[in-house]
Design a binder for these strands. Structure first.
Length: 282
DNA sequence: CTAGGATCCTGTCAGC
DNA sequence: TGCTGACAGGATCCTA
């Protein structure tokens, strides 16, 4: 669930609270959610590779965190900060039944919640982060790639629906189901269009829209929570204020008024305006 | 090599 | 009310 903008929001928010703080204790409530042996140490840096978050300690070890579909990180200290999968659990008492791991710092606790247990925290050597099997395969993020480069990549997957290509982190990194739908809508491209049938111009527009959609979201604090969770559990407002197509099934298209439809592409629920996004291939 | 489907897991919701 | 199947903001594994 959390896509690049949400992870970036977490990185920025968490940095304010745990940099230079000491991780003193790890409590594992679900064995499969924590890989490796718990470590202690002072946080020196927080980095992001695609949708993966890296917390570097001062002892040569790092924690790699991937939230996958339903992960959340909630920091509870003097102030509370939460981001990730949107749900009321943000304001629950912690730990709750979806809490899988608790990382205790000398300034507060960081709760890793994950309903479906697809996410994980993994201990790796800091100097091996870039060699991690997942990180190593990640492609460039949209703003690091040229339109020509993206177009060339599409030719290697010419028979795949363009949405499947957008979701493949080894082709272009950072998009998930929301931003794939948003980018395609903003580009006027049907998600099932074969990647190889896009022109270089269309590919370039799509790349630019992926960049724009994610940056708009980062600027608004991601699609989940604002920087600080208040007692009322105020949620991040990307989906409400900026999403043009995602989760708008049955509502009028913001551009032409046609009813938004939900279809299935690349095995994922996909939102389209059947008028603005027409297939030009087969 | 690519492409597509099943799979990991828990929870919620629509439809009988 | 109780059951059932579909589906979920991700990625990997297996098969053809």
């Amino acid at each position: 669930m959390p896509e690049l903008p949400e992870v970036e929001t977490i990185k920025r928010g968490l940095s304010k609270f745990i940099i230079n703080k000491k991780l003193t204790r790890t409590t594992i409530l679900c064995a499969k959610s924590f890989v490796g042996t718990p470590v202690t140490g002072t946080v020196k840096a927080i980095r992001r590779f695609g949708k993966a978050l890296i917390i570097d300690l001062d002892n040569g070890k790092s924690l790699m965190i991937h939230l996958r579909m339903t992960g959340q990180l909630i920091y509870d200290g003097k102030e509370r900060f939460a981001a990730g999968h949107p749900s009321d659990n943000f304001i629950d008492k912690l730990p709750n039944r979806q809490t899988r791991v608790v990382l205790e710092f000398d300034s507060g606790s960081l709760f890793f919640n994950d309903q479906r247990k697809f996410g994980f925290i993994k201990v790796i050597d800091t100097n091996q982060v870039e060699q991690d099997a997942f990180i190593k395969k990640l492609a460039k993020e949209p703003w690091q790639m040229s339109g020509d480069e993206f177009y060339e990549k599409l030719q290697k997957h010419k028979n795949s629906p363009i949405k499947a290509v957008l979701l493949d982190q080894t082709i272009i990194c950072g998009l998930g189901n929301i931003y794939a739908d948003e980018s395609l809508f903003m580009s006027g491209i049907h998600p099932a269009t074969k990647a190889g049938s896009l022109t270089k111009k269309e590919a370039t527009v799509l790349l630019n829209m992926a960049d724009r959609a994610m940056n708009i979201s980062i600027a608004s604090g991601g699609s989940t929570m604002k920087d600080y969770v208040k007692a009322d559990g105020t949620k991040g407002d990307y989906l409400d204020k900026f999403a043009q197509i995602f989760n708008r099934t049955g509502k009028p298209c913001l551009v032409c008024g046609t009813t938004v439809e939900k279809i299935r592409v690349a095995g994922r629920g996909t939102h389209i305006c059947p008028n603005c996004q027409r297939r030009k291939d087969d």
